[in-house]
Amino acid sequence: MNKPRSIFLLKKPLCGTIYSESAMTEIARLTENDGKVYEGEDILANPEDFRDVEIIFSGWGSPVMDEKILEALPSLKGFFYGAGSVRYLVTDAFWERDILLTSAYTGNAVPVAEFTVASVIFSLKRAWSAREELLSGKRGPWSPPGVYSGSRVGIISLGAIGRLVCQRLSAFSLDVVAYDPFASDSVFEELSVRRAPSLESIFAECDVVSLHAPKLPETLNMITGELLEMMPQNATFVNTSRGAIVDEAAMIRVLEKRPDLFAVIDVITDESQYCTTPLLKMPNVFLTPHIAGSMGRECHRLGDMAVEECRRFIAGEKPVVPVTAQNIVRMA
């Protein structure tokens, strides 16, 4: 039986980051693959060379799958994306074709959730503030009231990452509440978390608030200065989602006005400004350069998921994480 032809389609330097040697070996076993990495320009320059391609393994740096590139791939049946959000690459032309699209976004959610849980625990132990006090010469004792056991943690959005965070926090003696107007009651029951009636209640009542909402037109600047101003004494705001969901200028003003508050920020609106943003030098901010997601060998989990989706596709089995025009908005 002839094996379907596949290609790698993403930025060339990223292929080895996502697809390990063992993944590439399995791809060669499942499909006819020449081991080369192609970019969109390669396909558009020589469309006749790709007319029999049935399967694409992709990831960060995939070209936008528009009418022009799809015309050069008339045999395409499966597109396996070894990364998170695919919103930027799909088009109406893609949805009009009967092409299976899968994403490894649930795999990318794992390290973000782990980073978040670590940030929550450090925040509740007031580790960040204790370090600042050490730097200022204070030797202790430290006895911040009402931290850790019994503290209330608020999760904004119950997508893949938010759900994982809730599941992992269940191992600790914490009161976890979540805000997601689109999640059903059964989701809250499954996660054993309480539904917060509003964003205002989350910020007003929680010792730590962690943001996991997707970046959409309706979520831009969703987290306002007024919300942050509502936070209790010594509370912490954590953002591993997207910088643009927060009114960054307002956040800076609130953090300057209220030095008791702390922010753990992994994402900013303009990520070219990590070294120049005022957040970097604020004593009540712990800033990292978008490292919560998959890095190093963690990325191989994403490639392995893409390979497994391909195996299931060839075997006639249902995909684990199919992406459709209906569910794409909820994917990270």
Rank of each mutant, 00 (worst) to 15 (best):
M1T: 14
R5I: 11
R5F: 10
K11R: 13
T17S: 14
S22C: 08
T25M: 10
T31G: 02
E32S: 11
E32Q: 15
D34I: 14
G40T: 14
N46T: 13
E48D: 15
D52V: 03
I55R: 09
I56R: 01
F57G: 00
K68H: 11
A72R: 08
K77P: 00
V86T: 15
F94R: 00
F94D: 04
T102G: 08
G107T: 08
A109P: 02
E114A: 08
L124F: 09
E132Q: 15
S136W: 13
G140P: 12
P145V: 06
R152C: 13
S157Q: 08
I161N: 01
L164G: 03
Q167G: 01
F172A: 00
S192Q: 15
S201P: 01
F203S: 01
A204Y: 03
D207A: 12
P214A: 09
K215H: 11
E226F: 00
E226V: 05
L228P: 11
M231G: 07
D247H: 09
D247M: 03
E248R: 10
I252C: 11
E256M: 15
T277Q: 09
L280W: 07
I291P: 05
H300D: 06
R301E: 02
L302Y: 02
G303M: 03
G303T: 04
A306E: 09
C310I: 07
R312E: 14
E317C: 06
V321I: 09
R330Y: 01
